[in-house]
Amino acid sequence: MMLELAADQGVSIADSNLDDSPLAIRGLTVSYGQKPAVFSVDMTVQPGGMTAIIGPNGAGKSTLLKAALGILSPLSGQVTVYGKPLEQQRARIAYVPQRASVDWDFPTRVIDVALMGLSRQLGLLGRIRVRHMSRAMDCLNRVGMRDFADRQIGQLSGGQQQRVFLARALAQEADLYLLDEPFAGVDAATEKAIIAVLKSLKEAGKTVVVVHHDLATVTDYFDHVFLINTRKVAEGTVAEAFTAETLQSAYGGRLATAQIDQISRALG
């Protein structure tokens, strides 16, 4: 019903002949109460690369991601994953929520969180077998958390918790990885470990989308940029979309001129 609405509202119909891109969003509007957090956004994620979603605080970055995943219900809009509706493609998606969105006091161990990534295969009552266990351990190993498998999750540092979340996503063996602020409040070693894992995913042909807030690392880490401030500001390769002009128009006065100069110099 809402999808037709979006089409009526002048979203170009040609666009909704959706391609096979890992994630295609058309005319997405999400609102909390009266004020839209994301307004009529189109997004096409390029396959096999790393895309950063950037924008000022409160620009709707996380909201965009959550609505794309069906965690929030949009007012209007259409989301396809590899050309098909989201519901049919759940197995191909892995999501890493913001670390602060869960209560780490929850009585569970590191290994149990990693095993949650296998729950689609396990189903309601499937037994956890040795192969499941070894795959979860393997994923913990990839993020350097193998030795912590039996710890309660509340006993970990912030960076370690973030790595456990990443291990859970790895266990899902998805094609499209969506991460919400994975570098927020983590130590340098964790940031390095996470980016190494994400790059290895990219090399394996997976697609990675990251809500990111640190403009200084965008050129180092990412291939594509999606710049948002409630509406889409720019989308494209880092060279195309991450420029002094686009940043100025997304961040307005909130970004110091010196910072923009620095970024444009970094971009060459």
Binding site: K66, L69, G70, I71, R90, I93, A94, Y95, P97, S101, V102, D103, F106, T108, V113, M116, R168
Partner: peptide, 8 residues
Amino acid sequence: FDEGFART
């Protein structure tokens, strides 16, 4: 534990 992840 994690409602957002559960929905995905």
